[in-house]
Amino acid sequence: MAAITMYELPGCPYCAKVRSKLDELELEYDTIEVPRSHGERTEVEEVSGQTGVPVITDEDNGIDGMHESDDIVEYLEETYA
C-alpha cells in the first residue's frame, strides 16, 4: 500500500491534472474511485469533510484530506519535486 491515496472520479479533469503530476513525479499512489452521486461519497467526506474530488492523503507527511487540484499539485511539487 502506497503512502499517497487519491480519491477520484473517472473523467474528472481536475483528477486528471493531479494524476498527471503524480505520474510525472513518479510517485507510487493508490486510487479510490468515488461514486458519481455526491450523496454516496461517504468515504471521501469522512477523509476531507466534503464530497468533491480530487482529494489526496499522504500518510508520510500527515496530509489528511487535501482537496482542490491546484493546491494538491503545488503540494506535490513542493514536497516531492
Results as ranks from 00 to 15, higher is better:
M1A: 05
M1Q: 06
A2F: 04
A2T: 03
A3P: 03
I4P: 03
T5D: 11
Y7N: 05
E8H: 11
E8S: 15
L9P: 08
L9F: 12
P10Q: 06
P10C: 03
G11V: 04
G11E: 14
P13I: 06
Y14M: 09
C15P: 12
A16Q: 14
A16I: 12
A16P: 15
A16S: 15
K17V: 14
K17T: 15
K17L: 15
K17H: 14
V18P: 15
V18L: 13
R19K: 13
R19M: 14
R19L: 12
S20A: 14
K21G: 08
D23E: 11
D23I: 06
L25N: 07
L25R: 07
L25H: 07
L25F: 01
E26C: 02
E26N: 13
E26R: 07
L27Q: 02
L27G: 05
E28T: 07
E28V: 04
Y29G: 02
D30E: 08
D30M: 06
T31F: 03
T31E: 00
E33Y: 15
E33L: 09
E33V: 15
E33R: 13
V34T: 09
V34R: 03
P35W: 10
P35E: 11
P35M: 06
P35S: 13
R36G: 13
S37T: 13
S37W: 11
H38R: 13
H38N: 12
G39F: 07
G39V: 05
E40C: 01
E40A: 09
E40Y: 02
R41E: 08
T42W: 07
T42Q: 12
T42K: 10
E43S: 05
E43N: 14
V44P: 02
V44Q: 04
E45H: 11
E45I: 12
E45S: 14
E46V: 08
E46S: 13
V47L: 05
S48A: 15
S48W: 07
G49H: 12
T51R: 15
G52Y: 12
V53I: 10
V53P: 04
V55T: 08
V55H: 04
I56T: 08
I56V: 10
D58L: 06
E59I: 14
D60I: 09
D60W: 11
N61I: 05
G62V: 09
G62E: 10
G62S: 08
I63L: 08
D64I: 12
D64P: 02
G65Q: 00
G65M: 06
M66S: 06
M66Y: 05
H67N: 08
E68F: 00
S69G: 00
S69N: 01
I72P: 03
E74T: 12
E74V: 07
Y75T: 04
L76T: 05
E77C: 07
E78N: 10
E78A: 02
E78Q: 11
T79Y: 06
T79V: 00
Y80M: 00
A81I: 02
A81V: 07
A81K: 07
